[in-house]
């Protein structure tokens, strides 16, 4: 399996597009994160809410960062073989199952790495600037790390499956970005109840709610309000997610042959 993961990494590492997209995707939230750790000078101040919530904005940016990177990499890893018409040969070399597992493992490893770097980095920035996560939430850091890790892996796998089904890295990336960033921000107040179901962190957050009951403040997102979903529906959502991961790619495989 390690060899298969290595093969997927060789495919990915020499491509320019994902790294350029990553650079742009990371630059904006990172700049905002640095800015938001001092709310007095932040252009986003009106969104921050009451005093004491300002830490959430730094948190939003760091968690957003930890999701954007897996999103982009998930798209490229899932769609790379369609882009170069190598899907048939690559699937034959490795076997379909082993290839899929290697791709999923690479995305998961990347997601874990990104989340650790981003969250610990933002925590250090918070400490350095005197506000932000480091200042307000050190006891909750491990819990936040756990939930962000789960979300980052979820997003990476979801977009990987999307790219595989659509057979296009760019379209999957576009849908992923709209889903993750644009939709929640643009439609926040208007469609708050619906947005709750679009946000992947809510899905996982809702599912693990009993275990993370004290994370209400962590999952508070300034542009969307409190964001934990009820438990029973979130189980249904989780099942739907499992169907998405397992059934949809399989169905697409049956309908559209590998080339």
């Amino acid at each position: 399996m390690i060899k298969n993961i290595h093969a997927e990494w060789i495919k990915l590492r020499r491509q320019t597009a994902p790294w350029v997209v990553l650079l742009f995707a990371v630059a904006l939230p990172l700049a905002t994160l640095l800015n938001a750790s001092n709310p007095a000078s932040s252009v986003f101040d009106p969104l921050l809410g009451a005093e004491g919530r300002s830490v959430s904005y730094a948190l939003i940016n760091s968690t957003m960062l930890s999701r954007i990177m897996p999103l982009v990499i998930g798209c490229w890893v899932g769609g790379v073989d369609w882009g170069f018409q190598t899907a048939g040969m690559a699937a034959h070399w490795a076997g379909r199952g082993r290839m899929a597992l290697a791709k999923a493992a690479l995305v998961a490893l990347f997601s874990i790495g990104c989340t650790l770097v981003v969250l610990l980095g933002s925590w250090l920035i918070g400490c350095w600037r005197g506000r932000g996560i480091g200042h307000s939430l050190p006891p909750l850091l491990p819990a936040q790390l756990a939930i962000c890790l789960a979300t980052a892996i979820w997003v990476g796998w979801a977009t990987m499956a999307l790219a595989y089904c659509l057979r296009s890295r760019l379209v999957a990336c576009l849908i992923g970005v709209v889903w993750l960033m644009v939709l929640p921000v643009m439609l926040s107040d208007l469609l708050a109840p619906i947005i709750k179901w679009i946000e992947p962190m809510n899905w996982l957050g809702g599912f693990v709610n009993p275990a993370f009951a004290n994370l209400n403040d962590l999952t508070f997102v300034a542009v969307r309000g409190r964001a934990l979903a009820p438990d029973a529906p979130s189980v249904a959502v989780l099942l739907a997610t499992a169907a998405f991961f397992c059934f949809l790619p399989w169905l697409m495989d049956r309908r559209r042959e590998l080339r």
Partner: peptide, 27 residues
């Protein structure tokens, strides 16, 4: 198996393409 389409990884070198083929087969 050699497929009909021209299927190589264009961003990698020739050596990189051979490595992908070998590692994918767990060699």
């Amino acid at each position: 198996y050699l497929c009909e389409e021209l299927a190589v990884f264009p961003h990698n070198s020739a050596a990189g393409n051979l490595q992908i083929s070998a590692l994918s087969r767990t060699r």
